[in-house]
Design a binder for these strands. Structure first.
Ligand code: MN
Ligand code: MN
Ligand code: ZN
Ligand code: ZN
Lengths: 145, 145
DNA sequence: CTCTCACCTTAGACATAATCTAATCTTCGA
DNA sequence: TCGAAGATTAGATTATGTCTAAGGTGAGAG
């Protein structure tokens, strides 16, 4: 990805463009498989150890707070991160826990009356079920379990 | 709640109605504040210590798997549980993490083409923002950072 | 240019959430 | 009645994430 683009995004959000922060952002922009913090930490340090675990978590939190990165909650398991630009929904597999992107479509918002004085920031749609890998094969070996 | 009703639900799902499992289910049916596993463990054991931590977790997992209980993911924090019968959506507060119920309304489903061979079990809407407690007061002291 | 202070990084300790283990208990059903 | 599957238990273990205290870095005031 474009170095200047990332630097710009960070500075626009009031974050210094440090080596470590850049590495996290860059990795996320190149990888859309919704990696966990541990996976990001490992990937960033694969070539040349460069970022501590605490810094990786700190930077991820900074990026989320700045709105540049999205955190996907999968219950129990580790949080997953997503820097994909375009809006989209998520599909989470009941069996393997994989998080996959679904095409975006507009969602009806909750009735104002039911919100009371709550302030809405975002609405998120999560579709659950079995991913392509885990879904039973159509008409071959469905004998599993 | 009706003892027979709970017993029935459990047995219909192929789960034995043990003291410990009953206690978890019963507590959840009576408490709609989306307690965490730790809170459920504590509540169940408040009167007369009766269930280990492992059993509480085991039973919660069993109930979720059976579809009798719903798990609400709030990233980072502990999972929250919900045995409320009627369908509903959730509002999660960015600041305090509270999970609140929102009235149900029908959601548009993803296009079949975009799902491929994935099997959908459920679609879930999560609204995020600030809860009534955490939202800024209308026109009094909004001076808070 | 240089100095300073807010911002950032770090290792490792700590905290919390959840699962695993291995032994024991319970109960369904042949 | 009795065996096996199902359930429970205390405690160890793993997984995930935060905190602490110390030191590094660089943007910008002067
Ligand atoms: Mn995504
Ligand atoms: Mn609920
Ligand atoms: Zn899967
Ligand atoms: Zn709140």
């Amino acid at each position: 990805m474009d170095v200047q683009e990332i630097r710009q995004k960070l500075e626009d959000s009031g974050l210094r463009c440090t080596t470590q922060r850049y590495a996290v952002m860059s990795f996320l922009m190149d990888h859309h498989e919704h990696p966990t913090a541990a996976e990001i930490y490992e990937a960033v340090n694969r070539v040349d150890p460069r970022s501590s675990r605490a810094t990786t978590y700190n930077n991820l939190n900074d990026l989320v707070e700045a709105g540049l990165v999205r955190q996907v909650a999968s219950e129990g398991r580790a949080a997953r991160y997503d820097a994909r630009g375009e809006q989209h929904h998520h599909f989470i597999c009941d069996r393997c826990g994989n998080v996959e992107d679904l095409d975006w479509y507009e969602l009806p918002q909750p009735a104002l009356a039911s919100l009371g004085r709550r302030v809405v920031r975002d609405t998120e749609l999560i579709v659950r079920g079995l991913c392509t890998q885990c879904a039973p094969r159509r008409r071959s070996q469905a004998q599993n379990s």
